[in-house]
Amino acid sequence: MSWRHGLAAALVLPIAALADAPAPGDRRSGYETMSPALRAMQDDDVANPGMLWVLDGEALWSTRAGAADRACADCHGDAAESMRGVAARHPTFDPRSAAPIALDQRIERCRVEQQGAAPSAPESHDRLALTAFVAHQSRGLALGPFDDPRLRPFVDAGRASFHQRQGQLDLSCADCHDRHPGRRLAGNVIPEGHPTGYPIYRLEWQTVGSLDRRLRGCLAGMRATVPAPGAPELTELAAYLAWRARGMTIETPAVRP
């Protein structure tokens, strides 16, 4: 194959061919490596503590807030219809910022701009609750497909950072989550790292938390530089992870150890 042909092939190659992530169909949610007891905790809506946040988000959805004195429901109606599938599309390309935007950031923008509400912190209870409620409307749907070409450069950047060795341990995300999933780190099974259930109820946290929080925790564990909550590099990484998990089933609110 000539140099020119090779280049042409590289240019038209879909992203999938470049990645060494588990192939679609082979990917396993962390749910599948959990004990039957934890799976039961996630499956039973009365036993799943994440449902408490969903319930709180449901109440917020129809509570009037901000200077506009408007509820989410006043514009968006029944979330079961209007929000179904929304989480499956996030992070999505946001033309205004010309960058990907995560679901909680999208909700926050709506709260601040449409409701005139005071800005909320990324890991605040209300933001988590509303995000969990909105994401829950997509439970059972497939993630993706994330085929917007405008999103691609950010997915690529996220993939690059996923494969970038960093921190004092000189590890990349891929070292664990692409190359050694299923093996153990201390007592825990290393998951493939799919963002299918966020916000999740993590037993380690004893509360619900965002993907950002999980990524920051992972980076801290690698002794790497930890970006601020909501930092663009985290959203790029989230965009790559979402694309990598495309086709997988949304579980929100997932339970994880």
Binding site: L185, A186, G187, N188, R216, G217, C218, A220
Partner: peptide
């Protein structure tokens, strides 16, 4: 009881 590998700050 197994202990978590990655404890965040």
């Amino acid at each position: 009881v197994t202990l978590a590998a990655c404890l965040e700050d």
